[in-house]
Amino acid sequence: MKTFIFVLSFIFGGYFVLEFFLPTQAKAELGFDGFTPLFLDFVTIISSMAFGLGIINLFSIHFQKITLGLKGKFYSFVLLLSLCFTLVSGIWHFASVESLNLRLKFLEKMTQGDVNQKLAQLFPSFYKTLVSICPELDKACIAREKENVKSRIKDSDKHFSKLIFDFLTNAIFLPLGAAMFSLLAFFIASASFRAFQFKNIFGFLLLLSAVIVILGQNSFWTQLFPWFVELRAWLLNNVSSAVFRAIAIGSIIGGLIFSIRIWLGLEGVGK
């Protein structure tokens, strides 16, 4: 198993490494450019399929709380209920709109003439519905049915699944997400008063730099001292970015080494 994992890791990692290092002509001859988008789709689909792991984890923890009657079971119930409502309403609405879209496309293809039989074989339920409405399959009837489907697609915005999903998005998800993050502003204010003191030269430099960056964008301060804007820009461009570049280069090299280790099977799953 270990050998198989190592070989798999080497092939999949090696594809992109080879794709990066090979000269353009060699890549064209080997057909890399045509295959890469397919390969990327392949890997992306696999990684996307992991979405359920988080949901299963949430369910197992909170369902256990509810069934065992532990403390906080009411809140666990609220969490699972809101999760189910969001998922079900979102997918229900999407499925209903998508099926209407596909029906519309089916009707458009039917009016094109020559692929009718193939479409009838591939989508018997769509064909059956159409025949029940337009037994003669005449163009005028199909055109009327198309308009009917288009208006149903427009009306789907008033469907209860869309209303529920929009409510959960606009009333809960977006505002509460912002509110959670905004709590940090209060803690920063509190920290500014209690924790940011200069006991030594390093603390003083930290505070000085922070104050320059804060006040360099402040409307009142820059009206009194317009050169603060340039000072802030100079500090960010020359000192702060130089130090951060050193940190970034170090972390890029560290990341590069770690990626090579994963590719060669020295880290990660197969170890």
Partner: peptide, 23 residues
């Protein structure tokens, strides 16, 4: 919103100065 930000930044600056003076 920007003028509110300017007020907020001035308040934070004041807190830093006050905190250090009191300490």
């Amino acid at each position: 919103q920007f003028s509110s930000l300017s007020f907020g930044q001035a308040f934070i600056f004041l807190l830093i100065v006050m905190g250090n003076i009191i300490r």
